[in-house]
Design a protein around this nucleic acid. Structure first.
Lengths: 347, 347
DNA sequence: GTTAGCACTCACTTCACCCGAGTGCTAACG
DNA sequence: CGTTAGCACTCGGGTGAAGTGAGTGCTAAC
């Protein structure tokens, strides 16, 4: 039971009008504003059909029609025209994006704020995570008496460090020696390469420092395994721009939900089954009670095969999908360069 | 013109009732609920006086009275009883606080969320900043061909690093030598010790690496000077718990304001002239248009003389000052231990 | 100085009413 | 037979009048 050309045109008109005005759209308005060559009455008949087929909803008898979740889905999959950003828009975006970033952390917060601003919607974004994880370099330095600093450099270049107390009688020189040895043993290895036998080998060679080595090895493993995808929520208050959230209770429910890091993470890990780079999840497709009336446009971003992360823009189901998808695509294109630059300059 | 005992009692009753109910309080209710031994009529007279003196406001003729900003100020300065947390409350707090923290960053986000939860108000909090800044250790290591990692350890123990491209022909050994030399020159110095003459001395000794040295020195200075007080906003949506923000426009204005990092920073850098550890800033004392109807309870936190930062709880001027002050004090007491522990284990 | 009494004020609620956008149906038209 | 004009009907939202009740301010008595 697929939709005829005419029904599709009408559905598209309704979805777009509704996205633009947030008001239920009536047959007469479609007849007037869209040049379909049809009278209001005809459109009315088609609308009745579309409602019966589940593509439209009626808030009440004497209001116009509103797209149902199915309607949005069909629109997004089949009717939505690709909106391409104008040169001017891209330029504005570039000037906003190209600023001095202190670190990757700040890229995420700044970029998600920018996205919020241009989409007028809350944005969730994960920190770029390093894809693979192998040890490039392990180094220990004494930074004061009895306190050593372990520095672990991972491939892709992220650097982590940890301070460790050293029991009294290990000298500076010994730490140096341990450092060099450990580095020779671990450089190039990933988490699964550092197995029981490897550890035994290390202990065997430097048994007298076993306690100290254990702490270091644990930390190295933690670095390799930890995939701390911290999530940042930008411009949450933007949800209040949308008339569907002018009800204070609904607004509160949403803001409470998204204020919670775990929930934000959940949102970002959604999928709609497809494998395209930008995913659209509409209403309860998310399977999250609190997101029943919202949609999410999700994009993956990448930088040089090293870093990757996710960006999600959250809005009412009535959100302007075309524009938001295009914004995300444009930003994604810029992001790669910025991330790589920041990543290689600082950490 | 100071307030007589009776006026003070009545003012206190009004402030506390209003804080509890969020409704303008009338003379009759005070007579009934507080055992002042006075009739409603007498209280009415005193209230008229208090209004004339500026301690009370009247939303309109036929409503009860509401504390004015001056009224709150007097209450906070002179009438507020110290509320001390119960053993149970402290214990609950402790179980919430004592969890595994990945780093100082996560302490801030977790703690501010906890504070938001118990105060039912938005919380702003800065990352702990290192008080003094002297170089303890500078170290460079080659992490791949042409790429060196500079590690700077500051006193207090914060560690920062940066990757630097190295022009082709500097060897691993040479970097080691530069590293040792630079460390010997810089260890123990603060920003102002690294002056022109010191830099000349370094260039003089190792002139052939001047370009590389310049990058390293710039980074060291940046570490010493930078006081990046990143700010975290927790539980912003809590503002919606308060009836004064049930108006969607007011809620939006506030949330927009606090969503902006710069504004959050502004809030935390407020002062009320006093020097006590917990400051209360009421209404337009903040001098921020958007905070006209809100108050802020500000506290400094410290850890071992090394770290310090600020916590601010934001609520309507009608907020429960006594309870919030006490909560902040209790948390502050716990925070020191947690911060020191995290700080010395990881950074 | 304190209190009881009373007239007055004013936000808030309720209710009836109307208006208008929009629908669904029917009958006529090409 | 699909399309269209016409018309009765629906129903949310807006308006204004009336009623309600908490609270005040004043006055006079205790």
């Amino acid at each position: 039971m697929d939709l005829g050309k005419r029904k599709q045109m009408i559905l598209q008109a309704i979805v777009e009008d509704y996205i633009a005005t947030a008001e239920p759209v009536g047959s007469r308005n479609i007849a007037k504003n869209h040049d379909l060559g049809l009278s209001a009455a005809t459109i009315r008949n088609e609308m009745a059909d579309l409602e019966e087929m589940g593509y439209l909803d009626k808030p009440h008898t004497s209001a116009g029609r509103v797209p149902s979740q199915l309607g949005y889905r069909f629109y997004v999959d089949s009717l939505m025209h690709r909106y391409s950003a104008t040169v001017e828009e891209i330029e504005n975006l570039n000037t906003a994006l190209h600023q001095r970033y202190v670190n990757l952390n700040s890229v995420v917060s700044v970029v998600s704020d920018i996205i919020s601003k241009i989409t007028k919607c809350p944005t969730v974004m994960t920190l770029p995570a390093v894809n693979s994880a192998k040890v490039v370099n392990v180094k220990m330095l004494m930074i004061e008496k009895n306190l050593a600093l372990i520095v672990v450099v991972l491939d892709g270049g992220s650097v982590r460090n940890k301070k460790v107390k050293v029991s009294g009688n290990i000298t500076y020189r010994q730490v140096d020696a341990i450092s060099d040895f450990l580095n020779s043993q671990l450089a190039g290895l990933g988490a699964k390469d550092i197995d029981e036998s490897r550890i035994m080998l290390i202990y065997g060679a430097m048994g007298q420092y076993k306690d100290f080595l254990k702490v270091v090895l644990d930390f190295v493993l933690e670095c390799l395994q930890s995939n701390i995808t911290e999530v940042y929520v930008g411009g949450a208050s933007n949800i209040l721009n949308h008339p569907e959230f002018c009800d204070i209770d609904r607004a509160r429910d949403f803001l409470r939900f998204i204020d919670n890091r775990e929930n934000a993470t959940k949102v970002l890990s959604l999928t709609n089954g497809g494998d395209s780079d930008v995913k659209i999840i509409i209403g309860d497709e998310a399977g999250l009670e609190e997101m029943r009336d919202t949609s999410i446009v999700l994009a993956n971003y990448h930088a040089g095969g090293i870093l990757s992360g996710k960006i999600g823009v959250i809005g009412p189901t009535r959100m302007d999908y075309a524009r938001i998808v295009s914004s995300l695509e444009t930003i994604n294109a810029q992001l790669e360069g910025i991330l790589t630059a920041v990543f290689y300059n600082e950490e």
